[in-house]
Amino acid sequence: KHICAICGDRSSGKHYGVYSCEGCKGFFKRTVRKDLTYTCRDNKDCLIDKRQRNRCQYCRYQKCLAMGMKREAVQEE
């Protein structure tokens, strides 16, 4: 069993190059498709875990990228 590289929830498989849960997969897809931009209200180092993953979209998206999620993979779907 794999866990989500972004928030630690149960992974549903590899999405956009990274083991991730449905929540983070959908979040990344929406962000890329709609070309959304986020801002962090703190120091750009918010904790992203299962409980708090919805608290800061900026940091969640940065963690998706840092863990290796690929924007191109969304476009190719």
Rank of each mutant, 00 (worst) to 15 (best):
S11I: 05
E77A: 15
A5V: 07
R33P: 04
C46E: 03
A5G: 08
S20T: 15
C4Q: 01
G8Q: 14
D9M: 02
R10F: 06
K70A: 10
G23N: 03
I48H: 15
D9H: 03
H15C: 06
V74H: 09
Y16M: 11
T39I: 15
K44Y: 04
I3N: 11
N43V: 12
S12G: 15
K1V: 03
Y16S: 12
R41P: 15
C46A: 04
Y38M: 13
K1C: 03
R71W: 07
C40K: 01
M69Y: 11
T39K: 13
T37H: 14
V74M: 09
M67S: 12
L47P: 08
E22A: 07
D45C: 07
K44C: 09
C24E: 01
C40H: 05
T37A: 13
R51I: 11
Q57W: 09
E22G: 13
N54D: 04
E22Y: 04
L47S: 04
C4R: 00
S20A: 14
D49P: 09
S12M: 13
N43Q: 05
R71T: 13
T39Q: 08
T39N: 13
V74L: 07
A5E: 14
V32A: 10
V32D: 12
G26F: 04
Y58R: 08
R51D: 06
K70M: 08
H2G: 11
V18K: 02
K44A: 11
G13Q: 10
R41M: 12
C21T: 00
K70W: 10
M67D: 08
A5T: 14
A5H: 14
G26W: 07
Y19R: 05
T39P: 13
Q75S: 11
K50I: 09
E22H: 05
K50E: 06
G8I: 03
K29Q: 07
K14M: 11
C21H: 00
K44M: 09
G13M: 08
R53N: 13
N54S: 03
H15K: 04
C24I: 00
R71D: 15
N43W: 10
Y16T: 08
K44N: 13
R41D: 15
K14E: 08
K70N: 15
S12A: 14
K29R: 11
A5W: 13
L36N: 09
I48W: 12
M67N: 10
C46V: 03
H15G: 07
K14I: 05
T31E: 03
S12Y: 03
S11F: 05
K50H: 09
A66Y: 08
G68Y: 03
E77M: 08
R33F: 08
D45M: 02
K50S: 05
R30H: 03
T31G: 04
G13D: 12
K29S: 07
K70I: 13
M69V: 02
N54H: 15
H15N: 03
H2A: 06
D9F: 02
Y58C: 06
A66C: 05
L65W: 05
L36H: 12
C7R: 00
R41T: 13
M69F: 14
K50M: 14
L65C: 14
C56G: 02
C46H: 05
G26M: 06
R10A: 04
T31Q: 06
F28P: 00
E76K: 05
H2W: 05
S11G: 05
T31C: 11
F28K: 00
Y19N: 04
R41H: 15
G26N: 04
Q75N: 07
K29F: 08
M67L: 12
F28T: 00
R71L: 13
S20V: 13
C24H: 00
G17E: 11
E77F: 15
A5M: 14
S11D: 10
A66E: 13
G13Y: 12
H2R: 05
G26H: 09
E72N: 07
R30M: 04
C40F: 00
R30W: 04
V74Y: 08
E76A: 13
Q75I: 10
G68Q: 07
S20G: 15
T37Q: 15
C7S: 00
G17H: 07
E22P: 08
C59R: 00
G68H: 05
L36V: 12
T39Y: 11
L65H: 06
G17L: 05
E77S: 10
Q57P: 13
F28E: 02
E77Y: 13
H2C: 03
D45N: 08
K44L: 06
R53A: 10
E76C: 13
V18C: 06
T39F: 10
C7I: 00
I3D: 07
V32Q: 10
H15Y: 07
E76I: 08
K29V: 15
D49T: 06
S20N: 13
G26K: 12
Y38W: 06
L65A: 08
I48E: 04
C24G: 00
A66S: 12
E76P: 07
R41N: 07
T39M: 14
K50T: 05
L47M: 07
T37K: 15
C40T: 01
C4E: 01
K50G: 12
I3F: 07
K44D: 15
M69A: 06
C40I: 01
Q75Y: 05
Y16D: 14
Q57K: 05
S20R: 01
D42G: 15
R33C: 03
T37N: 11
M69T: 02
Y61C: 07
V32K: 10
Y16V: 11
M69L: 08
R10P: 12
R41Y: 11
A73L: 09
R41K: 13
E77L: 10
R71E: 11
A66I: 08
Q57Y: 06
Q75W: 04
C46M: 03
V32W: 03
S11M: 05
K1I: 04
D9E: 15
A5K: 10
A5C: 12
V32R: 03
R10T: 09
K44E: 08
A66R: 09
I48Y: 02
T31N: 05
V18R: 03
C46T: 03
D9S: 04
V18F: 04
F28A: 02
L47G: 12
G13W: 01
H2K: 15
H2E: 15
K50R: 09
G17P: 03
K1D: 09
S20H: 12
C40D: 02
C4P: 00
Y58F: 09
I48C: 08
L36I: 13
K14W: 10
M69P: 01
A73P: 12
M67K: 12
A5I: 15
S20Q: 12
E72T: 09
A5S: 13
C40L: 02
D35G: 09
C7W: 00
L36Y: 07
S12L: 13
E77C: 12
Y19T: 06
C7H: 00
Y58A: 10
T37I: 10
R51K: 15
D42N: 13
A66L: 14
T31A: 09
L65K: 10
A73M: 14
D49M: 03
R51T: 13
G13A: 13
H15S: 03
R30E: 08
R71S: 11
T37V: 13
